[in-house]
């Protein structure tokens, strides 16, 4: 079968628009070649390898021993916060936060078998990479206080930037909850 399709006559408006090629959106994804005057086309999309996610980050990864559960439950019962909050674009530790960190320091001394992971987070405002750095600064600021108690070697710091908000809203109340450092014992 012979098909002849006339293409559109286009004006010089090309400078500000893309060609729309609706008709060929469902072309096969098999490899292609052009035996042409010019060797230009190698749209070999079949070789895209969709790599599956292997190995995930999750809280379940942490050892979930009874010791850990009991110890941290006790600390929580005492009303000690496991999350510290921060101001916009700031990693300053205020007096109340310092008091909380000191309670965690004492807890770590009482439970030498436990290690601590400090997870730093930012709100969604600003750029992702900057927020990744900012989240780490917040976690490092907490670690610095704990460091005064010689706990450095038992503390891991990690930043998730703005990627793992606690509250997925777009207002000050959500942002305030998302600018945080979480204490995760393991």
């Amino acid at each position: 079968m012979l098909k002849i399709i006339s293409l559109v006559a286009a004006t010089v408006l090309l400078s500000s628009c893309f060609t729309s090629e609706e008709h060929d959106q469902k072309v096969s994804t098999k490899s292609s070649t052009v035996d042409a005057e010019e060797n230009i086309v190698k749209a070999d999309y079949s070789r895209f390898e969709s790599q599956q996610y292997d190995g995930s980050y999750s809280r379940e990864d942490a050892p979930n021993s009874a010791v850990l559960q009991n110890a941290t439950a006790e600390l929580k019962d005492e009303g000690v916060e496991f999350v510290l909050y921060f101001s916009y674009d700031d990693s300053e530790i205020d007096e109340a936060a310092t008091q909380t960190i000191i309670k965690h320091a004492n807890f770590m001394r009482d439970n030498p078998e436990l290690n601590l992971r400090l997870e730093g987070h930012a709100d969604e405002r600003g750029t992702r990479e900057y927020n990744l750095a900012l989240g780490e600064n917040r976690a490092l600021a907490v670690k610095e206080v704990l460091g005064l108690y010689d706990l450095d070697s038992r503390i891991a710091v990690i930043s998730f930037g703005e990627e793992m908000p606690l509250v997925r809203n777009h207002d000050e109340s959500a942002w305030g909850k998302n600018r945080r450092v979480e204490f995760v014992y393991q």
Partner: peptide, 12 residues
């Protein structure tokens, strides 16, 4: 020139 079906979008 000649084009394979799957290369038409690229050629466009």
């Amino acid at each position: 020139f000649a084009v394979h079906n799957s290369g038409i979008r690229r050629i466009a």
